[in-house]
Write a protein that binds this DNA or RNA. Structure first.
Length: 266
DNA sequence: GCGACAG
DNA sequence: ATCTTGTCGC
């Protein structure tokens, strides 16, 4: 009777894989949007300004050290040109699902989807045209990380940005580091992540001048890797692109204040 | 068998 | 993810 202690998680993991494979059928790996990027299309004609990308969303989730199941999700929207925050949205909930490598979306996607839905259903004028997610997209054991998962659920163009590499297809932090140091890549700040299978999983990017530690960019949904890279570069005042950085900062502040206020009114 | 393993 | 202050440098 004690011989199958992980039976439950084996079954849910199996189910989760099926869900990932199913949602993956809807994944779009090319540019699929109507807007343009003003900073790049200098050849624009008169009427192109209203078609420019205006609002970029960023999402992140923070936790309480005292209770790691308490999570605060933040969705911030920044002006694509100035990178100023024009809108913020929060939600604090108890997460029941644990973090399992390769299955992050089952823990974080529901609360993120909720924030997007809230803005959409209220017809908020700042509803983002593009979303940046704190986590990988294609760069994932089954090619369907959090950024893909959220992208399919909310049907928005999404870019995945990881702060650490999820080792896949022979790619490791040290192999990436070696590539950056290799002289054939003399001083490049962008390296294509090609696995031993030959598949392209994303790109490692030194997003600011002084930075040694790269960020990992991959397709989430409805956008190509090339476009993803261009947009991420436009958003990097610091190592972490501004939409995600602001979501990270603000979600931490929010959950701290939530902690304080909820214990005060006891 | 052992280690690795986004957040 | 989170624990954590000051500190070294541009």
């Amino acid at each position: 009777m004690m011989d199958h202690p992980i039976e439950y998680s084996e079954h849910t993991t199996e189910d989760w894989i099926n869900v990932q494979e199913s949602l993956k059928q809807k994944l779009i790996l090319e540019d699929c949007f109507t807007w343009t990027i003003s900073s790049l299309d200098m050849s624009s004609v008169e009427n192109s300004r209203e078609n420019n990308l205006k609002f970029i969303g960023g999402v992140d989730v923070s936790f309480l050290k005292e209770d790691p199941s308490m999570a605060c999700a933040a969705l911030v929207v920044v002006d694509a040109e100035t990178l100023d925050v024009v809108h913020e949205e929060f939600d604090v909930v108890q997460l029941q699902i644990p973090y399992v490598p390769g299955f992050l979306a089952f823990r974080e996607a529901p609360i993120l989807q909720g924030l997007l839905d809230k803005m959409k259903q209220s017809a908020n004028p700042f509803y983002p045209q593009l979303l940046m997610v704190d986590g990988n997209g294609l760069l994932h054991p089954r090619g369907f990380g959090l950024a893909c998962h959220v992208g399919v659920l909310v049907d928005l163009p999404v870019i995945g940005v990881g702060k650490n590499l999820h080792h896949v297809d022979g790619l490791t932090q040290s192999s990436v580091r070696k590539l950056f140091e290799a002289k054939e890549n003399n001083g490049k700040d962008l390296i294509c992540l090609v696995g031993k299978s030959g598949r392209v999983w994303g790109a490692a990017m030194r997003s600011t001048h002084g930075s040694t530690k790269p960020i990992y960019v991959s397709i989430g949904h409805r956008i190509s890797l090339d476009s993803s890279i261009k947009i991420v570069k436009l958003c990097c005042k610091f190592r972490i692109p501004e939409p995600i950085r602001q979501a990270d900062i603000r979600s931490r502040i929010f959950i701290q204040q939530f902690k304080g206020s909820s214990s005060m009114d006891k």
